[in-house]
Amino acid sequence: MQPRVELVAVRKSYQGFVAVDDLTCSILPGQIFGLLGPNGAGKTSTIRMMIGITAPDSGIVRIFGAPLSRIAMHRVGYLPEERGLYRRMTVRDNLSFLGQLSGLSISTSAERIEGWTARLAIDEWLEHRVEELSKGMQQKIQFIAALLHDPDLIVMDEPFAGLDPMNSMQLKDILLELKTAGKTIVFSTHRMDQVEKLCDSICLVDRGKSVLQGNLKEIKAGYGSRFVQIDYDGDGRFLAESALIDSLNDYGNHAELSLKPGADSQELLRSAMSALNVRRFQVMEPSLEQIFIDHVTRK
């Protein structure tokens, strides 16, 4: 299957600072792909190169199997991290303008604007200026602008930032629907907990480099049952001193930890029960955040 996006040994630096360093990854059609990492890891720089906003210093970027072209640009929908609309223009004019730039005719654009705004329940705001809208509503408009031209590749930088739970859920439902329709969706976020339920594949980046990538289920399976959550009462210093534990995130009466390779979780349970009042002990699949911390810490 031909990848929707391919980055091969891509590098980008700004005034001596290397934002993306020798990054290689490919995104298959119909996938939800997570480009994950902490702030400043190089996610936005990677996305900008992916969709042709900036050019890499070196390396190859292919989109729909070829270098970026104007036709390919019209097949991409982009929601940038820094949301931007013309504040003094009406919602309708903003959307119509962005739709036309993405290749739609005025009439098609008008039809789709009606449909999308009705679906997201903001159709009554169509004739209002953007500056009159709340931040959440502006975000919805931006979201519609990214999808108006029915793109095959949807790239979203921090899509859930600033959305309340109801709107987040609505956005998630639409994205899943688009995935079912065969669209490819790329997320970039530092909030790994929000997207790990959605992603099929991920690429974890840190300081511009890819530290881990692949199918999310396979990555998690590769970690086996080394991750444990404990709810406890008592002196948690015992956990920090345990020779069985590789990394620990202790919240006082709740701890998340990974065991050293070969360590036995039952042995940890027995020693924990002798030192603490254990209310819950659960061996579980690691979260993306845990995987990331584990990976970066071990490096």
Partner: peptide, 15 residues
């Protein structure tokens, strides 16, 4: 104005 409203990045995806 376009720089301040951060719309440039949206525009550069299509033009």
């Amino acid at each position: 104005e376009e720089k301040a409203s951060r719309i440039t990045e949206v525009l550069l995806c299509s033009t």
